[in-house]
Simulated scan of single mutants.
Amino acid sequence: RFDEVVDGVADIAKSIKMGPGMEPGTQMGPLVSDEQFRRVTGYLESGKSDGATALAGGGRFGDRGYFVEPTVLTNTRPDMKVVREEIFGPVLVASPFTDLDQIAGIANDSEYGLGAGIWTRDISKAHALAKKIRAGTVWINCYNVFDAALPFGGYKQSGWGREMGHEALHAYTEVKAVTTQL
């Protein structure tokens, strides 16, 4: 079902309306700076030169601004930069897998662990995989859903501590232990 799923995702990516953030109907705006634009497009060039296939996007959108097309990459390997590093751009890297241990191993073979997305009809498998993945946030059948009551933060090189939720209060408290021998 891999091809069916990524083709559907690519169709959605191709339909996203790009434009200025304040323009009605815009679904995706530009990247924040020229530096970030060059970083993301550099990742895309690296992925394509390493053999990745862009089913959607893969480059600049338009001729002005810091717009990058929503991109879906396939034919990737776990050793590729586009798989191993955090891109922070509109790029999805999709890889087929045979079992949960295999895909959890690939996901965890990274120095990063900010967020992960799992899409499936089998909620038991989704929770089993979420337990195995070392990421600060795991979304199941959704992505980039935030709530102030939920803690947010990464594992490994994706940060420490948590923003939002009860866990965020730890950054504003000082704990003291006082011991007296009687």
Rank of each mutant, 00 (worst) to 15 (best):
E85D: 13
E86M: 12
I87N: 02
I87R: 04
G89T: 08
P90F: 14
P90A: 11
V91L: 08
V91K: 00
V91Q: 04
L92P: 00
L92K: 01
L92N: 00
V93D: 03
V93P: 03
V93Y: 04
A94W: 14
S95P: 00
S95N: 03
S95W: 04
P96W: 06
T98M: 03
T98I: 10
L100N: 02
L100I: 15
D101Q: 14
D101L: 14
D101G: 09
D101P: 09
I103M: 02
A104K: 08
A104L: 11
G105R: 10
G105M: 09
I106Q: 03
A107E: 09
S110V: 12
S110N: 05
S110T: 15
E111A: 07
Y112R: 10
Y112I: 10
Y112T: 12
Y112A: 04
Y112S: 06
L114V: 07
L114W: 02
G115K: 05
A116G: 05
A116W: 08
A116I: 14
G117H: 04
I118H: 01
I118W: 03
D122G: 12
D122F: 12
D122T: 15
I123L: 15
I123D: 02
S124C: 04
K125F: 01
A126C: 05
A128G: 00
A128M: 12
A128W: 01
L129V: 06
A130C: 03
A130Y: 02
K131C: 01
K131P: 00
K131H: 05
K132H: 01
K132W: 05
I133H: 01
I133Y: 00
R134A: 04
R134G: 00
A135P: 05
A135Q: 03
A135C: 13
G136A: 14
G136P: 09
T137C: 07
T137M: 14
V138F: 07
V138S: 04
W139G: 01
I140S: 01
I140R: 00
N141Q: 04
C142R: 13
C142I: 10
C142Q: 13
Y143W: 15
Y143E: 03
Y143M: 15
N144W: 09
N144H: 11
N144T: 11
F146V: 15
F146T: 15
F146D: 03
D147L: 12
A148S: 13
A148Y: 14
A148H: 08
A148R: 09
P151A: 08
P151K: 05
P151S: 05
F152G: 02
F152N: 03
G153E: 07
G153L: 13
G154E: 11
G154L: 14
Y155D: 03
K156D: 03
Q157D: 11
Q157R: 10
S158T: 11
S158I: 11
S158V: 12
W160M: 15
W160G: 04
G161D: 06
G161K: 08
R162W: 13
E163N: 07
E163W: 04
M164A: 04
M164F: 09
M164C: 01
H166D: 09
H166V: 15
H166K: 10
E167I: 13
A168Q: 08
A168S: 15
L169K: 03
